[in-house]
């Protein structure tokens, strides 16, 4: 209707006036997580914030609105040394043969986080990937600090010296076609870009399993057998590269996934990786949420 001509005209005016004014005043961006125009924290308040914002780039905290930032239930204190839970964990006591060293997650899987992950994973809002990926830097920094202490590596040395490769939990080709992307791969790419740890595509998923979220714990465990396999070519290349290095310890690999629930997915992937080579590897899981 004709109103809409004017409507669009006004839109244009508002848009351009907005950009011009935007140059003068503080910019009012849309928050990438909730999509609303909301103020971010001021510089002063930002610096007053505790870790983990310290390990994230300042642009991250600045681009989110304060409500979304406040909603993030960061895991500060790890209670279970293995799975990185914020609480004591019966699963890890029960388990005896973990193929991975430990897991660390960025956030608790709270309701707002569940919604956020659903937006990204199921609705397909891929614009969220950089933000979720960046959130992984916090547990990675913690993990790196812990590890460099244990290994006796200087604290300031680059992360790519400590981590030899970063890989991710693969999805089946059916799922990839349906969804259009692999949510874990995108997160791994983001981490790799931010840290310069080389990204290796080491794993494939052999068959298409039902959605994990519909299954019980024991069903998940059963299902995971031989679900994953190693990409022989990439693995060989990675091992070659690794063995060429001088210090020939066990390779330390970061395994990225979106969510750690019982750890069965991570366990299955780690087992597949371990089988690929006679000498053991140290596999560290890095997940976005711990449920």
């Amino acid at each position: 209707m004709n109103g809409f001509t004017f409507y669009h005209l006004r839109q244009q005016v508002v848009k351009y006036a907005g950009t011009t004014l935007g140059l003068l005043g503080p910019s009012a961006q849309l928050c990438p997580l909730c999509g609303k125009t909301a103020k971010s924290l001021s510089h002063k308040k930002l610096s007053a914030q505790q870790a983990p914002l310290g390990s994230l780039s300042p642009s991250f905290a600045k681009s989110l609105c304060r409500n979304c930032l406040a909603d993030i239930p960061w895991i500060y204190k790890v209670k279970c040394r293995i799975c990185g839970r914020g609480a004591v964990c019966p699963d890890c006591i029960r388990r005896s043969d973990t193929a991975f060293v430990l897991n660390r997650s960025a956030v608790q899987y709270s309701e707002p986080m569940r919604e956020l992950l659903a937006k990204y994973k199921y609705r397909g809002n891929e614009t969220l990937a950089p933000y979720l990926g960046e959130m992984l830097l916090h547990p990675l920094a913690e993990m790196t600090r812990e590890l460099s202490g244990r290994l006796g590596i200087r604290a300031g040395s680059p992360w790519s010296e400590i981590w030899h490769a970063i890989t991710y939990v693969p999805v089946s080709s059916e799922r990839a076609e349906e969804r259009g992307f692999n949510q874990a791969e995108k997160l791994a790419v983001m981490v790799s870009q931010n840290t310069e740890i080389p990204l290796c595509h080491l794993l494939v998923r052999l068959r298409h399993s039902e959605k994990q979220s519909f299954k019980t714990r024991s069903a998940r465990m059963r299902d995971m057998n031989s679900l994953f396999a190693v990409r022989a070519g990439s693995m060989k290349q990675f091992l070659l590269m690794h063995n060429r290095r001088k210090e020939c310890g066990a390779p330390r690999i970061l395994l990225v996934d979106d969510i750690y629930t019982t750890g069965s997915t991570i366990q299955a992937c780690a087992e597949a990786l371990q089988k690929a080579d006679t000498s053991p590897m140290d596999i560290y899981a890095l997940t976005w949420a711990r449920s």
Partner: peptide, 27 residues
């Protein structure tokens, strides 16, 4: 519109619409 690599069609930059994402992804 936002362009991402698409595992479904195999393109490097397959555009999807961010404006009506809540109603299913238009790609």
């Amino acid at each position: 519109l936002h362009r991402t690599p698409c595992a479904a069609c195999g393109r490097e930059a397959c555009a999807y619409c961010t404006a009506c994402l809540t109603m299913g992804r238009s790609r």
